[in-house]
Design a protein around this nucleic acid. Sequence first.
RNA 1: GGAGAGGUGGCUGAGUGGUUGAAAGCGGCGGUCUCGAAAACCGUUGGGGGUUCACGCCCUCCGCAGGUUCGAAUCCUGUCCUCUCCGCCA
Length: 424
Amino acid sequence: MLEIKFLRQNLSLIQKALDVRGETVDLDAFIKQDSERRAILLEIEDLRHQRNSVSEKIAQMKKNHEDATSLIDDMRSVSSNIKNLEKSLGASEEAIETILMGIPNIPHTSVPIGRNESDNTVVKQVGATTAFDYQPQAHWDLGEKLNILDFTRASKITGARFPMYYGTGAALERALISFMLDIHTKKHGYREVLPPFIVNQSAMTNTGQLPKFEEDLFKLQNWDYFLIPTAEVPVTNIHQGEILDAESFPIKYTAFTPCFRSEAGSYGKDTRGLIRQHQFNKVELVKFAHPDNSYDELETLLQNAERILQELKLPYQVINLCTGDLGFSAAKTYDIEVWMPAQGAYREISSCSNFEDFQARRANIRFRQKGHKGTRLVHTLNGSGLAVGRTFAAILENYQQADGSVIIPEVLRSYLGGIERISP
RNA sequence: GGAGAGGUGGCUGAGUGGUUGAAAGCGGCGGUCUCGAAAACCGUUGGGGGUUCACGCCCUCCGCAGGUUCGAAUCCUGUCCUCUCCGCCA
Protein backbone atom coordinates (compact mmCIF):
# COMPACT_ATOMS: atom_id res chain seq x y z
CA MET A 1 0.00 0.00 0.00
CA LEU A 2 1.14 3.50 -0.78
CA GLU A 3 0.72 6.43 1.55
CA ILE A 4 -2.45 8.35 0.87
CA LYS A 5 -0.72 11.72 1.17
CA PHE A 6 1.99 10.62 -1.22
CA LEU A 7 -0.65 9.46 -3.66
CA ARG A 8 -2.52 12.74 -3.46
CA GLN A 9 0.64 14.74 -4.13
CA ASN A 10 2.24 12.53 -6.77
CA LEU A 11 -0.58 11.49 -9.03
CA SER A 12 1.39 11.78 -12.26
CA LEU A 13 4.24 9.75 -10.83
CA ILE A 14 1.83 7.00 -9.76
CA GLN A 15 0.14 7.11 -13.15
CA LYS A 16 3.53 6.67 -14.80
CA ALA A 17 4.31 3.72 -12.54
CA LEU A 18 1.00 2.12 -13.41
CA ASP A 19 1.66 2.67 -17.11
CA VAL A 20 5.06 0.98 -17.10
CA ARG A 21 3.58 -1.91 -15.17
CA GLY A 22 0.78 -2.19 -17.68
CA GLU A 23 -1.81 -1.72 -14.95
CA THR A 24 -4.84 0.52 -14.87
CA VAL A 25 -6.36 2.01 -11.73
CA ASP A 26 -9.09 4.62 -11.62
CA LEU A 27 -7.15 7.45 -10.03
CA ASP A 28 -9.89 9.96 -10.79
CA ALA A 29 -12.21 7.97 -8.56
CA PHE A 30 -9.58 8.23 -5.87
CA ILE A 31 -9.35 12.01 -6.17
CA LYS A 32 -13.09 12.33 -5.98
CA GLN A 33 -13.42 10.06 -2.95
CA ASP A 34 -10.47 11.67 -1.24
CA SER A 35 -11.78 15.22 -1.48
CA GLU A 36 -15.23 14.01 -0.48
CA ARG A 37 -13.78 12.31 2.55
CA ARG A 38 -11.91 15.39 3.64
CA ALA A 39 -15.00 17.55 3.26
CA ILE A 40 -16.99 15.20 5.50
CA LEU A 41 -14.13 15.01 7.96
CA LEU A 42 -13.99 18.77 8.25
CA GLU A 43 -17.67 18.87 9.08
CA ILE A 44 -17.46 16.02 11.56
CA GLU A 45 -14.49 17.44 13.38
CA ASP A 46 -16.23 20.75 13.72
CA LEU A 47 -19.27 19.09 15.27
CA ARG A 48 -17.13 16.93 17.52
CA HIS A 49 -15.30 19.97 18.72
CA GLN A 50 -18.61 21.57 19.54
CA ARG A 51 -19.75 18.48 21.37
CA ASN A 52 -16.55 18.30 23.38
CA SER A 53 -16.64 21.86 24.58
CA VAL A 54 -20.36 21.84 25.36
CA SER A 55 -20.03 18.55 27.20
CA GLU A 56 -17.43 20.15 29.37
CA LYS A 57 -19.81 23.01 30.03
CA ILE A 58 -22.56 20.55 30.96
CA ALA A 59 -20.23 18.86 33.39
CA GLN A 60 -19.47 22.19 35.02
CA MET A 61 -23.13 23.11 35.29
CA LYS A 62 -23.99 19.77 36.85
CA LYS A 63 -21.23 20.26 39.37
CA ASN A 64 -22.77 23.62 40.25
CA HIS A 65 -26.25 22.05 40.33
CA GLU A 66 -27.43 24.23 37.48
CA ASP A 67 -30.01 23.15 34.93
CA ALA A 68 -28.40 21.93 31.69
CA THR A 69 -31.38 20.39 29.94
CA SER A 70 -31.46 22.86 27.07
CA LEU A 71 -27.80 22.27 26.29
CA ILE A 72 -28.32 18.54 26.50
CA ASP A 73 -31.21 18.80 24.08
CA ASP A 74 -29.02 20.75 21.65
CA MET A 75 -26.30 18.18 21.90
CA ARG A 76 -28.72 15.38 21.21
CA SER A 77 -29.22 16.64 17.67
CA VAL A 78 -25.51 17.39 17.23
CA SER A 79 -24.73 13.83 18.22
CA SER A 80 -27.18 12.30 15.83
CA ASN A 81 -25.77 14.56 13.14
CA ILE A 82 -22.29 13.27 13.88
CA LYS A 83 -23.53 9.72 13.76
CA ASN A 84 -24.98 10.20 10.30
CA LEU A 85 -21.88 11.88 8.98
CA GLU A 86 -19.74 9.11 10.42
CA LYS A 87 -21.67 6.66 8.28
CA SER A 88 -20.83 8.57 5.11
CA LEU A 89 -17.26 8.95 6.27
CA GLY A 90 -16.99 5.22 6.80
CA ALA A 91 -18.32 4.54 3.32
CA SER A 92 -15.92 7.04 1.82
CA GLU A 93 -12.96 5.59 3.69
CA GLU A 94 -13.87 2.11 2.59
CA ALA A 95 -13.98 3.21 -1.04
CA ILE A 96 -10.56 4.81 -0.72
CA GLU A 97 -9.17 1.74 1.02
CA THR A 98 -10.37 -0.43 -1.84
CA ILE A 99 -8.65 1.76 -4.41
CA LEU A 100 -5.50 2.04 -2.34
CA MET A 101 -5.30 -1.73 -1.85
CA GLY A 102 -5.44 -2.21 -5.60
CA ILE A 103 -2.47 0.03 -6.40
CA PRO A 104 0.82 -1.84 -6.86
CA ASN A 105 4.17 -0.66 -5.58
CA ILE A 106 6.22 1.89 -7.54
CA PRO A 107 9.14 0.27 -9.39
CA HIS A 108 12.61 1.36 -8.32
CA THR A 109 14.55 3.52 -10.81
CA SER A 110 16.96 0.64 -11.49
CA VAL A 111 14.12 -1.56 -12.78
CA PRO A 112 14.16 -1.84 -16.57
CA ILE A 113 11.05 -0.59 -18.36
CA GLY A 114 9.32 -3.36 -20.26
CA ARG A 115 6.04 -5.01 -21.10
CA ASN A 116 6.62 -8.62 -20.13
CA GLU A 117 9.21 -11.24 -19.31
CA SER A 118 10.89 -10.91 -22.68
CA ASP A 119 12.04 -7.44 -21.59
CA ASN A 120 13.75 -8.70 -18.44
CA THR A 121 17.49 -8.13 -18.45
CA VAL A 122 20.14 -10.72 -17.68
CA VAL A 123 22.40 -9.41 -14.93
CA LYS A 124 24.91 -12.22 -15.08
CA GLN A 125 25.42 -15.88 -15.89
CA VAL A 126 27.41 -18.11 -13.58
CA GLY A 127 28.81 -21.52 -14.52
CA ALA A 128 28.91 -23.11 -17.96
CA THR A 129 25.74 -24.94 -18.94
CA THR A 130 26.17 -28.65 -18.34
CA ALA A 131 27.36 -30.50 -21.44
CA PHE A 132 26.12 -33.98 -22.39
CA ASP A 133 27.15 -36.28 -25.22
CA TYR A 134 23.61 -37.67 -25.25
CA GLN A 135 20.14 -36.19 -24.98
CA PRO A 136 19.77 -35.53 -21.24
CA GLN A 137 16.66 -36.97 -19.60
CA ALA A 138 14.00 -34.88 -17.91
CA HIS A 139 14.01 -35.07 -14.12
CA TRP A 140 10.55 -36.68 -14.01
CA ASP A 141 11.79 -39.56 -16.15
CA LEU A 142 14.96 -39.90 -14.10
CA GLY A 143 13.01 -39.70 -10.87
CA GLU A 144 10.52 -42.36 -11.79
CA LYS A 145 13.17 -44.72 -13.16
CA LEU A 146 15.22 -44.27 -10.00
CA ASN A 147 12.04 -44.92 -8.05
CA ILE A 148 12.45 -41.76 -6.00
CA LEU A 149 9.55 -39.75 -7.47
CA ASP A 150 5.96 -40.95 -7.92
CA PHE A 151 3.51 -38.46 -9.40
CA THR A 152 1.08 -41.16 -10.45
CA ARG A 153 0.33 -42.43 -6.98
CA ALA A 154 0.39 -38.88 -5.55
CA SER A 155 -2.44 -38.04 -7.93
CA LYS A 156 -4.48 -40.92 -6.51
CA ILE A 157 -3.98 -39.61 -3.01
CA THR A 158 -4.74 -36.01 -3.83
CA GLY A 159 -4.78 -35.02 -7.49
CA ALA A 160 -2.58 -33.53 -10.16
CA ARG A 161 0.39 -31.39 -9.24
CA PHE A 162 1.32 -33.01 -5.96
CA PRO A 163 4.73 -34.61 -5.53
CA MET A 164 5.68 -37.75 -3.66
CA TYR A 165 9.26 -38.77 -2.93
CA TYR A 166 10.59 -42.17 -1.90
CA GLY A 167 13.74 -43.44 -0.27
CA THR A 168 16.89 -41.58 -1.23
CA GLY A 169 14.70 -39.04 -3.04
CA ALA A 170 12.83 -38.18 0.14
CA ALA A 171 16.15 -38.06 1.97
CA LEU A 172 17.66 -35.82 -0.72
CA GLU A 173 14.79 -33.34 -0.37
CA ARG A 174 15.33 -33.35 3.39
CA ALA A 175 19.08 -33.00 2.93
CA LEU A 176 18.61 -29.96 0.70
CA ILE A 177 16.43 -28.30 3.31
CA SER A 178 19.02 -28.89 6.04
CA PHE A 179 21.88 -27.85 3.79
CA MET A 180 20.22 -24.56 2.83
CA LEU A 181 19.25 -23.74 6.39
CA ASP A 182 22.74 -24.54 7.62
CA ILE A 183 24.38 -22.24 5.09
CA HIS A 184 22.04 -19.36 5.86
CA THR A 185 22.21 -19.71 9.63
CA LYS A 186 25.89 -20.54 9.98
CA LYS A 187 27.47 -18.63 7.08
CA HIS A 188 25.05 -15.77 6.49
CA GLY A 189 23.80 -14.99 9.98
CA TYR A 190 20.09 -15.59 9.53
CA ARG A 191 17.98 -16.75 12.44
CA GLU A 192 16.01 -19.90 11.72
CA VAL A 193 12.28 -19.77 12.32
CA LEU A 194 9.66 -22.47 11.85
CA PRO A 195 6.38 -20.57 11.52
CA PRO A 196 2.74 -21.63 11.16
CA PHE A 197 1.82 -22.93 7.70
CA ILE A 198 -1.70 -21.54 8.01
CA VAL A 199 -2.29 -17.82 8.40
CA ASN A 200 -5.22 -15.47 8.84
CA GLN A 201 -6.63 -12.88 6.52
CA SER A 202 -4.77 -9.89 7.91
CA ALA A 203 -1.39 -11.60 7.55
CA MET A 204 -2.20 -12.27 3.89
CA THR A 205 -3.34 -8.68 3.42
CA ASN A 206 -0.21 -7.27 5.02
CA THR A 207 2.14 -8.95 2.57
CA GLY A 208 -0.08 -8.19 -0.42
CA GLN A 209 -1.61 -11.57 -1.36
CA LEU A 210 -5.02 -10.25 -0.38
CA PRO A 211 -7.34 -8.75 -1.38
CA LYS A 212 -6.23 -8.92 -5.02
CA PHE A 213 -4.92 -12.45 -5.41
CA GLU A 214 -7.24 -14.63 -3.37
CA GLU A 215 -7.74 -17.02 -6.28
CA ASP A 216 -4.08 -18.03 -6.03
CA LEU A 217 -4.56 -19.25 -2.47
CA PHE A 218 -5.97 -22.31 -0.78
CA LYS A 219 -8.55 -21.26 1.79
CA LEU A 220 -9.70 -23.49 4.65
CA GLN A 221 -13.36 -24.30 4.67
CA ASN A 222 -15.32 -22.68 7.52
CA TRP A 223 -12.24 -20.77 8.64
CA ASP A 224 -10.88 -17.39 7.67
CA TYR A 225 -7.51 -19.08 7.34
CA PHE A 226 -5.32 -19.80 4.34
CA LEU A 227 -2.49 -22.17 3.53
CA ILE A 228 0.67 -20.14 3.03
CA PRO A 229 1.86 -19.71 -0.58
CA THR A 230 5.31 -18.78 0.75
CA ALA A 231 7.03 -18.38 4.12
CA GLU A 232 7.22 -14.67 3.28
CA VAL A 233 3.71 -14.34 4.71
CA PRO A 234 4.14 -15.73 8.23
CA VAL A 235 7.73 -14.55 8.60
CA THR A 236 7.17 -10.95 7.47
CA ASN A 237 4.20 -10.84 9.82
CA ILE A 238 6.35 -11.79 12.81
CA HIS A 239 6.84 -8.09 13.49
CA GLN A 240 3.43 -6.83 12.42
CA GLY A 241 2.34 -3.87 14.55
CA GLU A 242 5.73 -3.59 16.21
CA ILE A 243 8.11 -0.68 16.63
CA LEU A 244 11.62 -1.99 16.12
CA ASP A 245 14.94 -0.54 17.16
CA ALA A 246 17.11 0.77 14.31
CA GLU A 247 20.12 -0.74 16.08
CA SER A 248 18.78 -4.22 15.39
CA PHE A 249 18.84 -3.82 11.61
CA PRO A 250 19.07 -5.78 9.49
CA ILE A 251 16.86 -8.41 11.13
CA LYS A 252 17.34 -11.62 9.15
CA TYR A 253 15.21 -14.75 9.25
CA THR A 254 15.38 -17.97 7.30
CA ALA A 255 12.51 -20.42 7.30
CA PHE A 256 11.74 -23.77 5.81
CA THR A 257 8.07 -24.27 4.99
CA PRO A 258 5.96 -26.13 2.50
CA CYS A 259 4.17 -23.72 0.16
CA PHE A 260 0.68 -24.13 -1.25
CA ARG A 261 -0.49 -22.47 -4.44
CA SER A 262 -3.64 -22.98 -6.44
CA GLU A 263 -1.74 -22.14 -9.68
CA ALA A 264 -5.00 -20.84 -11.07
CA GLY A 265 -4.57 -19.90 -14.69
CA SER A 266 -1.53 -22.06 -15.24
CA TYR A 267 -3.33 -25.12 -16.58
CA GLY A 268 -1.28 -26.85 -19.21
CA LYS A 269 1.95 -25.12 -18.16
CA ASP A 270 4.75 -27.31 -16.81
CA THR A 271 2.35 -30.18 -16.35
CA ARG A 272 5.11 -32.69 -15.79
CA GLY A 273 7.68 -32.86 -13.04
CA LEU A 274 8.50 -30.80 -10.03
CA ILE A 275 8.47 -27.35 -11.59
CA ARG A 276 4.89 -26.30 -10.91
CA GLN A 277 3.20 -28.05 -8.01
CA HIS A 278 0.34 -27.16 -5.70
CA GLN A 279 2.60 -28.07 -2.81
CA PHE A 280 6.34 -27.57 -2.68
CA ASN A 281 9.07 -27.00 -0.15
CA LYS A 282 11.01 -23.78 0.09
CA VAL A 283 13.67 -22.23 2.27
CA GLU A 284 12.96 -18.53 2.51
CA LEU A 285 15.09 -15.53 3.44
CA VAL A 286 13.40 -12.49 4.99
CA LYS A 287 14.99 -9.19 6.02
CA PHE A 288 13.77 -6.14 7.87
CA ALA A 289 16.05 -3.28 6.91
CA HIS A 290 16.69 0.42 7.33
CA PRO A 291 15.26 2.40 4.38
CA ASP A 292 18.64 4.01 3.75
CA ASN A 293 20.36 0.77 2.83
CA SER A 294 17.64 -1.66 1.83
CA TYR A 295 18.99 -1.90 -1.71
CA ASP A 296 22.39 -2.96 -0.39
CA GLU A 297 20.54 -5.54 1.66
CA LEU A 298 18.81 -6.74 -1.50
CA GLU A 299 22.20 -7.31 -3.14
CA THR A 300 23.47 -9.39 -0.22
CA LEU A 301 20.20 -11.27 -0.02
CA LEU A 302 20.65 -12.16 -3.66
CA GLN A 303 24.24 -13.26 -3.01
CA ASN A 304 23.08 -15.41 -0.10
CA ALA A 305 20.61 -17.20 -2.37
CA GLU A 306 23.18 -17.56 -5.17
CA ARG A 307 25.60 -19.14 -2.71
CA ILE A 308 23.44 -22.25 -2.55
CA LEU A 309 23.67 -22.79 -6.30
CA GLN A 310 27.41 -22.12 -6.23
CA GLU A 311 27.93 -24.70 -3.48
CA LEU A 312 25.84 -27.19 -5.43
CA LYS A 313 27.78 -26.30 -8.59
CA LEU A 314 24.64 -25.66 -10.60
CA PRO A 315 24.80 -23.20 -13.52
CA TYR A 316 22.45 -20.24 -13.23
CA GLN A 317 21.69 -16.73 -14.33
CA VAL A 318 20.37 -13.69 -12.53
CA ILE A 319 17.56 -11.64 -14.06
CA ASN A 320 16.41 -8.12 -13.27
CA LEU A 321 12.63 -8.24 -13.72
CA CYS A 322 11.25 -5.45 -15.89
CA THR A 323 8.36 -3.23 -14.83
CA GLY A 324 5.80 -5.32 -16.69
CA ASP A 325 6.89 -8.56 -14.99
CA LEU A 326 7.30 -7.17 -11.49
CA GLY A 327 5.10 -8.55 -8.71
CA PHE A 328 2.37 -6.40 -7.17
CA SER A 329 4.11 -5.57 -3.89
CA ALA A 330 7.71 -5.43 -5.09
CA ALA A 331 9.72 -2.33 -5.98
CA LYS A 332 12.50 -4.43 -7.47
CA THR A 333 13.00 -8.13 -8.04
CA TYR A 334 15.92 -10.29 -9.08
CA ASP A 335 15.06 -13.77 -10.25
CA ILE A 336 17.65 -16.51 -10.13
CA GLU A 337 17.20 -19.07 -12.86
CA VAL A 338 18.89 -22.45 -12.79
CA TRP A 339 19.96 -24.33 -15.90
CA MET A 340 17.68 -27.25 -16.75
CA PRO A 341 19.47 -29.38 -19.39
CA ALA A 342 16.50 -31.46 -20.54
CA GLN A 343 14.55 -28.33 -21.35
CA GLY A 344 17.61 -26.49 -22.57
CA ALA A 345 16.48 -23.48 -20.60
CA TYR A 346 17.01 -21.50 -17.44
CA ARG A 347 14.11 -21.84 -15.00
CA GLU A 348 13.25 -19.67 -12.02
CA ILE A 349 14.47 -21.10 -8.73
CA SER A 350 14.51 -17.97 -6.58
CA SER A 351 12.91 -14.55 -6.50
CA CYS A 352 14.56 -11.84 -4.39
CA SER A 353 12.67 -8.62 -3.83
CA ASN A 354 12.74 -5.33 -2.02
CA PHE A 355 9.25 -4.24 -1.06
CA GLU A 356 10.47 -0.98 0.47
CA ASP A 357 7.73 0.20 2.86
CA PHE A 358 4.83 -1.25 0.84
CA GLN A 359 4.29 -4.26 3.13
CA ALA A 360 5.44 -2.42 6.24
CA ARG A 361 2.70 0.16 5.81
CA ARG A 362 0.05 -2.51 5.59
CA ALA A 363 1.56 -4.51 8.44
CA ASN A 364 2.38 -1.38 10.44
CA ILE A 365 6.02 -2.32 11.05
CA ARG A 366 8.00 0.72 12.14
CA PHE A 367 11.27 1.59 13.81
CA ARG A 368 12.67 4.25 16.02
CA GLN A 369 16.14 5.67 15.59
CA LYS A 370 18.38 7.28 18.17
CA GLY A 371 18.46 11.03 17.70
CA HIS A 372 15.37 11.02 15.46
CA LYS A 373 11.89 12.04 16.43
CA GLY A 374 8.97 9.71 15.86
CA THR A 375 8.84 6.49 13.92
CA ARG A 376 9.46 5.44 10.33
CA LEU A 377 8.34 2.45 8.34
CA VAL A 378 10.90 -0.33 7.87
CA HIS A 379 11.76 -1.84 4.51
CA THR A 380 10.99 -5.52 4.04
CA LEU A 381 12.79 -7.88 1.69
CA ASN A 382 12.62 -11.52 0.93
CA GLY A 383 13.90 -14.15 -1.42
CA SER A 384 13.87 -17.86 -1.93
CA GLY A 385 16.99 -19.49 -0.75
CA LEU A 386 15.95 -21.72 -2.59
CA ALA A 387 12.86 -23.45 -3.90
CA VAL A 388 13.71 -26.99 -2.79
CA GLY A 389 11.71 -29.03 -5.30
CA ARG A 390 13.17 -27.12 -8.22
CA THR A 391 16.66 -27.54 -6.78
CA PHE A 392 15.98 -31.27 -6.55
CA ALA A 393 14.94 -31.27 -10.20
CA ALA A 394 18.01 -29.28 -11.23
CA ILE A 395 20.31 -31.71 -9.44
CA LEU A 396 18.71 -34.69 -11.16
CA GLU A 397 19.04 -33.13 -14.59
CA ASN A 398 22.50 -31.60 -14.22
CA TYR A 399 24.09 -34.48 -12.32
CA GLN A 400 22.60 -37.29 -14.39
CA GLN A 401 24.90 -39.88 -15.96
CA ALA A 402 24.58 -41.82 -19.20
CA ASP A 403 23.60 -44.95 -17.27
CA GLY A 404 20.61 -43.18 -15.70
CA SER A 405 22.22 -42.76 -12.30
CA VAL A 406 22.58 -39.39 -10.58
CA ILE A 407 25.70 -38.20 -8.76
CA ILE A 408 25.07 -36.54 -5.40
CA PRO A 409 26.69 -33.08 -5.20
CA GLU A 410 29.62 -33.24 -2.83
CA VAL A 411 28.27 -30.74 -0.31
CA LEU A 412 25.19 -32.88 0.23
CA ARG A 413 26.90 -36.20 0.85
CA SER A 414 27.45 -35.67 4.55
CA TYR A 415 23.69 -35.18 4.85
CA LEU A 416 23.03 -38.51 3.12
CA GLY A 417 25.25 -40.86 5.03
CA GLY A 418 28.09 -40.37 2.55
CA ILE A 419 26.41 -41.87 -0.50
CA GLU A 420 27.80 -40.55 -3.79
CA ARG A 421 25.25 -41.65 -6.30
CA ILE A 422 21.63 -42.70 -6.74
CA SER A 423 21.40 -45.69 -9.08
CA PRO A 424 18.40 -47.50 -10.57
C1' G B 1 -15.68 -29.15 24.72
C1' G B 2 -16.81 -27.05 30.11
C1' A B 3 -15.55 -23.19 34.13
C1' G B 4 -13.00 -18.79 35.38
C1' A B 5 -9.40 -14.38 34.94
C1' G B 6 -7.47 -10.73 31.89
C1' G B 7 -6.21 -7.49 27.43
C1' U B 8 -4.29 0.43 29.05
C1' G B 9 1.58 4.38 26.16
C1' G B 10 8.62 1.37 24.29
C1' C B 11 7.98 -1.84 29.09
C1' U B 12 5.71 -2.67 34.19
C1' G B 13 1.30 -0.91 36.06
C1' A B 14 -2.90 2.74 38.32
C1' G B 15 -7.42 4.14 36.76
C1' U B 16 -15.19 2.01 36.93
C1' G B 17 -19.36 7.68 33.37
C1' G B 18 -17.39 14.56 33.20
C1' U B 19 -9.58 18.88 32.63
C1' U B 20 -7.57 10.97 31.90
C1' G B 21 -3.87 11.18 26.25
C1' A B 22 -4.26 8.82 30.63
C1' A B 23 -1.03 8.47 37.84
C1' A B 24 3.48 6.11 39.32
C1' G B 25 7.86 3.48 38.17
C1' C B 26 11.30 1.74 34.44
C1' G B 27 13.40 2.86 29.82
C1' G B 28 14.69 6.92 26.14
C1' C B 29 16.33 12.02 25.24
C1' G B 30 18.46 16.88 27.12
C1' G B 31 20.89 19.21 31.22
C1' U B 32 23.51 20.01 36.22
C1' C B 33 27.61 17.65 38.68
C1' U B 34 32.50 15.05 36.90
C1' C B 35 38.98 14.85 33.90
C1' G B 36 35.41 11.21 32.12
C1' A B 37 31.78 7.71 33.60
C1' A B 38 28.40 5.88 37.27
C1' A B 39 25.17 7.61 41.04
C1' A B 40 22.17 11.68 42.39
C1' C B 41 19.22 15.80 40.98
C1' C B 42 16.34 18.92 37.27
C1' G B 43 13.72 18.99 32.75
C1' U B 44 11.59 16.37 28.74
C1' U B 45 9.35 12.08 26.44
C1' G B 46 3.07 8.24 22.27
C1' G B 47 0.69 7.01 17.47
C1' G B 48 -2.67 8.39 13.36
C1' G B 49 -5.40 12.23 10.82
C1' G B 50 -7.39 17.26 9.26
C1' U B 51 -6.15 22.37 8.68
C1' U B 52 -2.35 26.30 8.17
C1' C B 53 3.07 29.43 4.20
C1' A B 54 4.25 28.84 9.24
C1' C B 55 3.64 29.32 14.75
C1' G B 56 -0.40 26.88 15.95
C1' C B 57 -5.37 25.03 16.24
C1' C B 58 -8.52 20.84 16.01
C1' C B 59 -10.14 15.57 15.69
C1' U B 60 -9.04 10.60 16.91
C1' C B 61 -6.79 6.33 19.45
C1' C B 62 -6.97 2.41 26.35
C1' G B 63 -7.35 -5.63 21.80
C1' C B 64 -11.20 -5.19 17.66
C1' A B 65 -16.42 -4.09 16.11
C1' G B 66 -21.04 -2.32 17.53
C1' G B 67 -24.52 -0.17 21.35
C1' U B 68 -26.27 3.05 25.64
C1' U B 69 -25.39 8.45 26.97
C1' C B 70 -25.29 15.49 26.26
C1' G B 71 -20.53 12.94 27.50
C1' A B 72 -17.17 6.17 27.76
C1' A B 73 -10.61 3.58 28.96
C1' U B 74 -14.69 3.34 32.50
C1' C B 75 -21.65 0.67 31.44
C1' C B 76 -23.91 -3.16 27.68
C1' U B 77 -23.44 -6.78 23.38
C1' G B 78 -20.53 -9.43 20.03
C1' U B 79 -15.72 -10.93 18.56
C1' C B 80 -10.40 -12.02 18.67
C1' C B 81 -6.29 -13.04 21.66
C1' U B 82 -3.66 -14.47 26.34
C1' C B 83 -3.61 -17.08 31.02
C1' U B 84 -5.55 -20.79 34.92
C1' C B 85 -8.45 -25.24 36.13
C1' C B 86 -11.28 -29.63 34.26
C1' G B 87 -12.19 -32.99 30.04
C1' C B 88 -10.30 -35.00 25.43
C1' C B 89 -6.03 -35.73 22.44
C1' A B 90 -0.64 -36.19 18.70
